[in-house]
Amino acid sequence: MSDPVTPPQSANLAKNRLYLDCYKYMQSDKLALPTIPDVSFKIRRAINDKKANNSKIAKVVQIDPSITARLIKISNSPLYRGRRKIESCPEALTRLGLKVSQNIITAFAMKAVFTAKSHIIRRKMQDLWTHSSYVAAISAVFAHKTPGFDPDRAMLAGLIHDIGVVPILAYADKNADILTHPKDLAETIKELKNDIGIQIIRKWDFPSDFEDVINHSEDWYRDGGPEADYTDIVMISQLHSYIGKIDIKKMPKMDQLPAYKKLAAGHLDADQSINILDQARDEIDHIQQMLS
């Protein structure tokens, strides 16, 4: 777990039962965290089996026809397209490689985590998924156009950047009576989502650099070193996702951010970056559709 969260200092937090409950259970490792989707777990286990080959792994993947179809589809997309069209699961695994396939399949299966029963919380889960999948799609396209980055890893990083919100929404879904003020949920998410997100990443045994994605994807002026990383990719993708949705005066100027400067220095065309939502719209929509 990351560094302990400071107990509530403000009067609002001290009265916020959702925050107090989630904080207490998080600190004692008793907060219900989402489990990695079953199909993703089985495929990861098969891929990591040293005795497995593409044919055996394909049999596991093909248990889920939807995952199989989307894996084939993305292997033919501009992100990975080769000289000939891929038409089978084993061929897709060969073209993409097992580690790439593992990341992509995990991303495809991730939507199962974003569920709730009550109408209000279900809507918030849907909004969270829409935002996360949009950031993931932009991240994949950025990574495809920037040397040194893998689109599949960037897509997964984009998907999980707000994963810590899920257990908070899930707890609110089961305990609606503790929400006494409309701001309770927003306050709790702001205070706890990063620490809870890191707990989930560690539970799922995801790459350790994804912890930086969770902690710093909205830390606009972060400078993590001389080289760009996946946090920078997700951060700039987030800013692009806000265009047309948030008052531009409330957003930092992109060309002044360390992340943007490092990505541009990595030969990402500046004009293409600023206009990525227009220039890469078809590919972004394509990835979003596959994630959904």
Rank of each mutant, 00 (worst) to 15 (best):
residue 152 D to C: 14
residue 152 D to N: 14
residue 152 D to Q: 11
residue 154 A to K: 13
residue 154 A to F: 01
residue 155 M to W: 09
residue 155 M to Y: 11
residue 156 L to T: 08
residue 157 A to S: 14
residue 157 A to H: 05
residue 160 I to H: 02
residue 160 I to R: 00
residue 161 H to I: 12
residue 162 D to L: 12
residue 163 I to F: 10
residue 164 G to A: 09
residue 165 V to T: 15
residue 165 V to M: 13
residue 166 V to G: 03
residue 167 P to D: 05
residue 168 I to G: 09
residue 169 L to Y: 15
residue 170 A to G: 12
residue 172 A to V: 11
residue 172 A to S: 12
residue 172 A to K: 02
residue 172 A to R: 04
residue 173 D to E: 03
residue 174 K to W: 04
residue 175 N to E: 07
residue 175 N to I: 06
residue 175 N to M: 03
residue 175 N to H: 15
residue 175 N to F: 08
residue 175 N to G: 04
residue 176 A to F: 11
residue 176 A to N: 11
residue 177 D to Y: 10
residue 177 D to R: 07
residue 177 D to W: 10
residue 177 D to T: 10
residue 177 D to M: 07
residue 178 I to L: 14
residue 179 L to H: 06
residue 179 L to N: 04
residue 179 L to E: 03
residue 180 T to G: 13
residue 181 H to P: 03
residue 182 P to R: 07
residue 183 K to Q: 14
residue 183 K to S: 14
residue 184 D to N: 15
residue 184 D to M: 09
residue 185 L to K: 10
residue 185 L to G: 05
residue 185 L to T: 04
residue 185 L to H: 09
residue 185 L to S: 03
residue 185 L to N: 05
residue 186 A to P: 02
residue 187 E to M: 15
residue 189 I to G: 01
residue 190 K to V: 13
residue 191 E to D: 10
residue 191 E to N: 08
residue 191 E to K: 14
residue 191 E to C: 03
residue 194 N to A: 15
residue 194 N to Y: 03
residue 197 G to L: 02
residue 197 G to P: 03
residue 198 I to K: 07
residue 198 I to N: 09
residue 198 I to Y: 01
residue 199 Q to V: 05
residue 199 Q to N: 14
residue 199 Q to H: 15
residue 199 Q to P: 11
residue 200 I to E: 06
residue 200 I to G: 11
residue 202 R to W: 07
residue 202 R to G: 13
residue 203 K to D: 12
residue 204 W to C: 03
residue 205 D to Y: 10
residue 206 F to W: 11
residue 207 P to Q: 06
residue 207 P to A: 00
residue 208 S to V: 15
residue 208 S to K: 13
residue 208 S to C: 10
residue 209 D to T: 13
residue 209 D to A: 04
residue 210 F to Q: 01
residue 210 F to A: 02
residue 213 V to R: 00
residue 215 N to V: 08
residue 215 N to C: 09
residue 216 H to S: 09
residue 216 H to M: 06
residue 216 H to E: 09
residue 217 S to L: 01
residue 217 S to F: 12
residue 218 E to Y: 08
residue 219 D to R: 05
residue 220 W to S: 04
residue 221 Y to V: 07
residue 221 Y to C: 04
residue 222 R to A: 15
residue 223 D to V: 04
residue 224 G to W: 00
residue 224 G to C: 00
residue 224 G to T: 09
residue 225 G to Q: 02
residue 225 G to T: 02
residue 225 G to N: 02
residue 226 P to A: 14
residue 226 P to D: 15
residue 226 P to L: 13
residue 226 P to T: 06
residue 229 D to Q: 07
residue 229 D to T: 05
residue 229 D to F: 01
residue 230 Y to C: 00
residue 230 Y to K: 00
residue 231 T to R: 01
residue 233 I to V: 06
residue 234 V to R: 02
